[in-house]
Design a protein around this nucleic acid. Structure first.
Lengths: 344, 344
DNA sequence: CTGAAAGCGCTAACAC
DNA sequence: GTGTTAGCGCTTTCAG
């Protein structure tokens, strides 16, 4: 029987012939306090009426919500999408509903987004945004407000990241050491001259990967000449353009071509591979390409990308637990995976 | 000055020296009714106190929320991720916050998910799940409840889809005609024997694309023999396995290999390409492969995939507007894009 | 064990 | 214009 409007607890209580309080206790409250018979009656009534508790009302009455806010740069980016998937799973396990807001990578929007998030009075919030180096402490203030409001806050950070915001749990992703390990592996594989498609150097993640890679090379006595460090947008197209710049310079005789190129992101690496191919060269043979992340969606690109695998879904899940205080801690390591794109 | 606990409207009103009602009107209510001076005072107080309205409280008081619930199969799937991105953008423009719940493609979980969604009392809900043919009307009932609760509901449906659920706006995606057009284009390109990697035939989307393709071929006097219609999981691996089955049969002499294979999804197509390559054949040359969706992430696979482009983000955005009643309607067409994977 | 009643933070009549 | 005062739907003392 479709009801008009919406069914309230009062309706259920009335139908079950008990008080509002009893109905509430039967349906949600601390169990054990309700007689079996009343309990059954209430449940029956609820079922018949198709009652579903209004979580907003519960939230104001209880003073705490069941919302977990996830702030990401761009949900269409597979990196964030994978993290979101893990976060949703973990939140679900904790009985929380995930609200996703996206900054679009825009720092100014971040402020607004955080304000909206604050209005949600979330039980926990996970910040999976591309942190900007020299971050405006405005953002810090907004986060402080969240913390003061009682929300557990976790943020993905890099192992190069400087000051941690007080009150927020940082889940450190070892971009620095991962990139360093990759550099070492590539050198041992025989590569001896490298360029870095560095992405946006003001982004903490991009910066850490760049620094790590350079440090890894340095440990083997190698370095990357300045003209071979090319910044760009932190996207597939950015990688394409950066690689194109390198190729153009080499074609113009301005500089030789490196044996291997490290793109700080798989997506950028894919762009680079395309650029190489467009010049009539063979990626992986004429010039090696390595990425970072090992996003699953790119598993079938040819040549298969050497990269640093990050357990993205796991990261999302752990960030949630971290925000809820149910994850002990510990950093997340990447795993170097060598494939055809750097096989020579 | 970090406040302890949380700031309420009452705090703001007190600090501004006005009543609760005035503060409410100044901050949210129907403007115009508050004197400029009071208005300024209230805003100043709000700013100083870092006040952010509690949306849950507003929701119960107003009897309507600012939540838009998006139900997707799997947010890590680029198809859904793109739709989600568009939905988030459109919702944001409408001042709504998006809550994403994922069914994981599990029909039984769909029930639970819908129950949770109902508890949110969302202003609107977008169902972007893989509809199952012969759907359990249980789901229909759950949706009914949502509609009865006053939520605007929109669902992505196929042009082959049968009964529309009363009360829900169906945004029809022309899978059927898109696949038919693709078939026609491939025939005109010179292909004359086809296999279909049909995915999960119980999913409305997969089914429509299969039917459309077959119909498109029929229009040119061609057909697909039964043994060349191979069902599988609706995933990359499913496509891989299905193609592998085809290749194995051909290698065993059991059947010849078709000139061209249509995978009902780009992801499946990519899996098929990989399988072809593993057999030492050249995809696009020895056997053509076409997909559906044109997911951006796969733009750089080699050979570039012939496919049917769907404006995924746009679809997400329109579904939101549809649910809100601000989109007039009209189906979404796919656009055939021929590329190297079927060039011969 | 159960009911009556007092909130939770905010909005919306309804007066003044 | 602004303040008073009921609620919104639900939880939670506090008595019985």
């Amino acid at each position: 029987m479709p009801e008009r409007g919406t069914v309230t607890l009062a309706d259920v209580a009335e139908r079950a012939g008990v008080s509002l309080a009893t109905a509430s206790r039967a349906l949600n409250g601390s169990a054990r306090k309700v007689r079996q018979e009343s309990l059954d009656r209430v449940h029956a009534a609820a079922r018949e009426l198709r009652y579903t508790a209004n979580v907003q009302a519960q939230a104001v009455a209880r003073g705490t919500t069941t919302t977990l806010a996830l702030v990401v740069g761009d949900i269409a980016d597979p990196y964030f999408a994978a993290i979101a998937a893990g976060a949703i799973r973990a939140a679900d396990e904790a009985g929380l509903v995930v609200t996703i807001t996206s900054t679009g990578g825009d720092a100014s929007r971040e402020q607004d987004v955080l304000a909206v998030v604050a209005g949600l009075r979330p039980r926990a919030v996970v910040l999976a945004v591309s942190r900007r180096l020299g971050a405006t402490s405005d953002t810090g203030a907004a986060v402080q407000a969240l913390v003061a409001g009682g929300a557990g806050v976790a943020a993905l950070v890099s192992d190069l990241d400087g000051g941690s915001v007080p009150g927020v749990e940082g889940l450190v992703i070892r971009n620095l050491s991962g990139a360093a390990a990759l550099a070492g592996a590539l050198v041992e594989q025989g590569h001896d001259s490298f360029a870095v498609l560095a992405g946006d150097p003001t982004l903490a993640t991009a910066h850490a990967r760049y620094e790590g890679f350079v440090a890894g090379l340095a440990a083997h006595g190698l370095s990357v000449p300045d003209q071979w460090v090319v910044p760009s947008a932190f996207t597939r197209d950015g990688g394409h353009q950066a690689m194109e710049a390198l190729l153009a310079a080499a074609a113009g005789g301005a500089a030789p071509l490196p044996r291997c190129v490290f793109a700080v992101t798989d997506l950028m690496a894919v762009g680079a591979v395309a650029a190489i191919r467009e010049r009539g060269l063979v990626p992986g043979v004429d010039v090696g390409v390595a990425g970072f992340d090992d996003v699953r969606m790119l598993a079938d690109v040819v040549p298969a990308l050497s990269t640093v695998r990050l357990p993205l879904e796991e990261i999302g899940a752990r960030a949630v637990r971290r925000a809820l205080g149910t994850d002990a801690g510990g950093a997340v390591d990447g795993e170097v995976v060598l494939r055809a794109s750097t096989a020579r």
